[in-house]
Design a protein around this nucleic acid. Structure first.
Length: 194
DNA sequence: CCAACGATGGTCT
DNA sequence: GACCATCGTTGGC
């Protein structure tokens, strides 16, 4: 028996729904495991912040493929970002995994991240790929058949939405989602909306 | 606590 | 040649 999310139906939810549904779920890679606590949605239509917005390129090609695969890219020449491809095939959409709460394999994460502090292991998109050892070699792999898995969890977290982080375009859209009060979220920015 | 800044290399124009 | 879906360090409070 496994609580691996089986079938592609889960990943075929609309991207924003998937971004929220992923919160509270487990992400595993080998013996490493964490709870997804922060995500961002990137949409094909009316989203200037999306990599796929300018059409198909060599880099963003996985985003245009079927939902339920990985899209890993290098950012700032040093860090990797892990996304889960979503949306319809032919329309480039994805969910960026921004932060995890470490659950298993913490010693290895500490070694790779060169810190003992649990809150600093996976509280950012570049940090969690470093802690997990995820690189572009893990780009465009199936989340059902491949090494990276999403596991079910009973938790029903309370979700906060906010503006996405680090963008020059599309930062006005509230497409960032995280678990309210969770201390492993990358950072908290006061909403512009009171 | 917080803001500023540099590292660093792939991707795209 | 410009632009990054980032992070760690530094230096100020």
């Amino acid at each position: 028996m496994s609580n691996n999310i089986s079938g592609k139906k889960f990943f075929r939810q609309p991207t924003v729904e998937l971004a929220k549904s992923l919160l509270g779920k487990y992400l595993t890679f080998g013996k490493l495991k964490g709870i997804i606590v922060e995500t961002e949605a990137y949409l094909y239509h009316d989203d200037p912040g999306c990599h796929a917005g300018c059409g198909l390129t060599e880099r963003n090609a996985p985003m245009f493929g079927p939902a339920g695969r990985t899209y890993v890219y290098l950012i700032y020449g040093m860090y990797h970002c892990l996304n889960i491809v979503s949306g319809k095939e032919g329309e480039g959409e994805a969910v960026l995994i921004r932060a995890l709460e470490p659950v298993q394999g913490i010693e290895l994460m500490q070694k790779r991240r060169k810190t003992k502090k649990i809150e600093n292991l996976c509280n950012g998109p570049g940090k969690l790929t470093q802690a997990f050892g995820i690189t572009r070699r893990h780009n465009n792999l199936s989340l059902i058949d491949g090494p990276v898995h999403i596991l079910n969890n009973r938790a029903k977290p309370e979700i906060v939405s906010a503006a996405r982080i680090g963008l020059s375009a599309g930062k006005e859209l509230e497409l960032r989602f995280y678990i309210k009060g969770n201390k492993f979220v990358s950072r908290i920015i006061a909403s512009r909306f009171y």
